[in-house]
Design a protein around this nucleic acid. Sequence first.
DNA 1: CATCCGCTATATCGGCACGATACATCGACG
DNA 2: CGTCGATGTATCGTGCCGATATAGCGGATG
Lengths: 213, 213
Amino acid sequence: MGSGGSSVLELAVLGSLAESSMHGYELRKRLSSSLGTLRAFSFGSLYPSLKRLLAAGHIAEESPAEDVDAVPLSSKRSRVVYTITATGKERLADLLADSGPQSWSDDGFGIHLAFFGRTKPEARIRILEGRRRRVEERREGQRSAIARAADRMDGYTEQLQQLGLEATEREVRWLNELIATEQQLGDPGPATAPDPSGAKPARRRGGADRRPS
Amino acid sequence: MGSGGSSVLELAVLGSLAESSMHGYELRKRLSSSLGTLRAFSFGSLYPSLKRLLAAGHIAEESPAEDVDAVPLSSKRSRVVYTITATGKERLADLLADSGPQSWSDDGFGIHLAFFGRTKPEARIRILEGRRRRVEERREGQRSAIARAADRMDGYTEQLQQLGLEATEREVRWLNELIATEQQLGDPGPATAPDPSGAKPARRRGGADRRPS
DNA sequence: CATCCGCTATATCGGCACGATACATCGACG
DNA sequence: CGTCGATGTATCGTGCCGATATAGCGGATG
C-alpha cells in the first residue's frame, strides 16, 4: 500500500539526514557505527541510493560556503553535502509509519528501531507486533525442523539449529516485554490523555539474532 | 588460494548431490529443511547455479528410464535429475577442505557444518577456528559500538545491540566447546591412532545468531 | 462430472546490494 | 620529500533474491 518504495537504505538515509545534513562518507560512518554493526552499507549501495533519492527530489545537494563560513579551514575538497527536502520529510514520515513486511525483516526492523524516537506510538506497536509475528513464525519453523530432522541430520547442524532456536526464543521474549512497556506507555487506561513524555523503555538485558558482517 | 570458486550454493549443491542424485525441486526442499531455516535458496539462484555447475562439468543430467524402471507410476513429468561427476567430487573435496573467508561467513559456516561428516578432522578445526576468530571480531565491534554510542544512541537500538552482543558471546562459547571436543577427538595423545569411530560431539545447548528468512 | 485449487517442477527477469576497484586529496611520519 | 594511511566520490561486475510464467497432475468441491 502506501508509496511503493523498496530499499531499507532509503529509510536509513532519510532518517539520518533528517537529524543533520552530511556527505556520503560520513553518512556511511554513522550508519555503520551508530546503527551498530547491524549492517555494512557499502558505497556500492549507498551512492546509487543517494542518486535515486536525489532524482526523486527527497534530498538535495547543499552548495558549499554555507552558514558556517567561519571555518574555511584548509581547502574545500570535493565533498557533496546532502540535505533532506520537504518532500523527503513527507516520505520519511510515510516510511516511519509503514509497518509492512520490510519493517519485519532483520535489517529493516533494526533501522526502524533506530528511529523509534521519531515514530508515533501506534506505529511503534504495529511494527513491534509485526516483527514478533515474523519471529514467531521463524521459531515454529526452527522447532519443526529440529523435530523433523532429529535423526537424519548431522549432529553439528542440529546443535546449530538449536542455537538459532534459542536465540529466536529470546528475541520473542524481548519483544514481548518491549510491547508490554509500549502499551503501558500508550494507554494508561481507557479514554485517558496520551501523555507523550518520557518514552524510553526500562533498560534490560536479552538475546537476539542480529546479522552483522 | 585453491580453486577460485565463489558461491556458497556450489558447496551446498555438490554436497547434497554427493549423498544422492535428485532434481532441482527436491534439492531446494532438502536445502531449505535439512539445512534448516538457515537459508532460503530461491530458484532464482539455484537454477543458475546448477547451470554453472553443469557447464563446468561438475554435475551431469541423468537421463530417465534408469535403474528403477519398476515404477513407471503415472507419467514422467519433465524432470531433470542431476548427478555429481568425478570432477565434481574433486571439486567438492576442495570446497570441504577450504577454510577461507567464505567458510566463516554466517551462511557459509552453516553449510560447511552440515557436511562436517565428510570433512577431514584437520579441516574441521581450521574452519571452526576461523569462524571463532570472525565471531570474536564481531563481538569486539559490538562491544565498542555499545560503549561508544551509549549516550547518543536510541534506547531501543542500544537494547538491540546488547541482544546481538549476547548472542555473539554465546556463539563464541559454543565454538570453544566444539573446538575442544574436536581436538580431543583428533589427538588423544601424540603419535597415536586416529580412531575415527563415533565423531558426534556431546549434545549440549547454547545460543547463536543464525540469520534465516 | 466439471471445475478449481494447490502441489510439483522448471525456468527467466528485473532490481539491487555487495565487494573490489579506481581515482583524487590531504596529513603525518620518518 | 616520499610514501603511507585516512578521507572522499564514484563505478563495475557478479550474483542473489522475489516475483512471475508455464504446465502437468491430484484431490476436493460444487
